[in-house]
């Protein structure tokens, strides 16, 4: 499944979708900007304090199981996909 998504992204499909994307939809190497949170869960307050705030640019460095490693300015943060689903993003470009 993941491979198929990767394949799609390689050919520029799926990234131009108008529907709201979440951090969980991003593949390794993708860069995006956080636009907002879809709920007010306590854990999101902590994530914000850790540096994943609306307006920030992020890059997905690695995905392992349910874990996603993202970098933002000077820090690297691991979050699980259930949390990532509540973080809305706008894709910028794909870099490697």
């Amino acid at each position: 499944m993941q491979n198929r998504n990767r394949f799609r992204h390689k050919f520029g499909q799926g990234t131009s979708s108008d529907s709201v994307k979440t951090l969980n939809d991003l593949q390794v190497g993708e860069v995006a900007q956080i636009t907002g949170f879809s709920n007010h869960n306590e854990i999101l307050l902590k994530i914000e304090a850790m540096g994943l705030r609306p307006g920030r640019k992020i890059k997905v460095l690695q995905r392992l199981g349910r874990g996603i490693l993202v970098s933002t300015s000077m820090s690297r943060i691991v979050i699980t996909s259930d949390v990532a689903r509540s973080i809305e993003v706008k894709c910028e470009k794909r870099s490697q």
Binding site: I47, M50, R76, I77, I79, T80, D82
Partner: peptide
Amino acid sequence: SHFVMELPP
């Protein structure tokens, strides 16, 4: 539960 953690350099 979910997990959130920073990886230091």
